[in-house]
């Protein structure tokens, strides 16, 4: 009985500290972060076009595409495909994506398609692609936009985010930021 009395009192106290005060403290300090702790946004002409870290859907040929998504880039939720590596239906989906990619990118060779362009990300909201995945799309985007491939290639170069301190982790390109810069090219 004594145990239960202590339990009730201690539970109330710990709820106040761990669930009440602690998140408030983090939120308070977080206000000083970029985006004020609400998530960092990207704006074009004063209009919010997305969250820097949250991937969005690009299907038009004039934009660089991101990765396939199991939630169709609707960030109200998030999920991977959870397909296993030997699943025949899954492998057929991947093959279909390769075919679609080749149709939209005439001239691209199959062995140049990086696997992440045809496999779904873990969150369904992956904001990035690898530099190779950006380069392989340059020709398509250049043709549609009537820009020189060299100009686009240097635009991609400028948007490559190097590994942390140049030493740790992969290189990547943020698709949204690249496409915003692409729209600003004249």
């Amino acid at each position: 009985m004594k145990n239960f009395l202590i339990s009730i009192k201690l539970t109330l106290i710990l709820i106040v500290i761990c669930a009440g005060l602690y998140p408030l403290l983090v939120a308070g300090v977080g206000k000083m972060a970029r985006g004020g702790g609400k998530g960092e946004t990207v704006t074009v002409n004063g209009r919010v076009v997305g969250y820097a870290n949250v991937g969005q859907k690009f299907t038009e040929d004039k934009y660089f595409w991101g990765r396939p998504s199991a939630v169709d880039y609707n960030a109200a939720g998030s999920a991977g495909s959870n397909k296993g590596p030997s699943n025949p239906d899954y492998l057929k989906t991947v093959q279909d994506r390769i075919d679609t990619f080749l149709v939209h990118n005439p001239g691209a060779r199959k062995e140049d398609i990086p696997s992440e362009m045809v496999t779904a990300s873990g969150s369904g909201l992956d904001p990035d692609i690898s530099p190779a995945s950006a380069y392989v799309q340059v020709k398509r985007v250049a043709t549609v936009r009537r820009l020189s491939e060299e100009r686009l290639r240097s635009l991609v170069d400028a948007h490559i985010e190097k590994p942390l301190l140049g030493m740790f982790g992969p290189s990547k390109v943020n698709v949204l930021k690249l496409n915003v810069a692409l729209d600003e090219l004249k």
Binding site: K31, G39, G50, A75, A76, D183
Partner: peptide, 30 residues
């Protein structure tokens, strides 16, 4: 927690946001 907040993890009590993407789709962000 503070390191995460400074790297872009949400910490405020605001609910879902609705945005129009660059390509013109309307999506929500939790």
């Amino acid at each position: 927690g503070i390191v995460l907040a400074f790297n872009g993890t949400p910490a405020s009590y605001d609910g879902k946001d609705t945005i129009t993407t660059l390509q013109g789709d309307t999506v929500q962000v939790s």
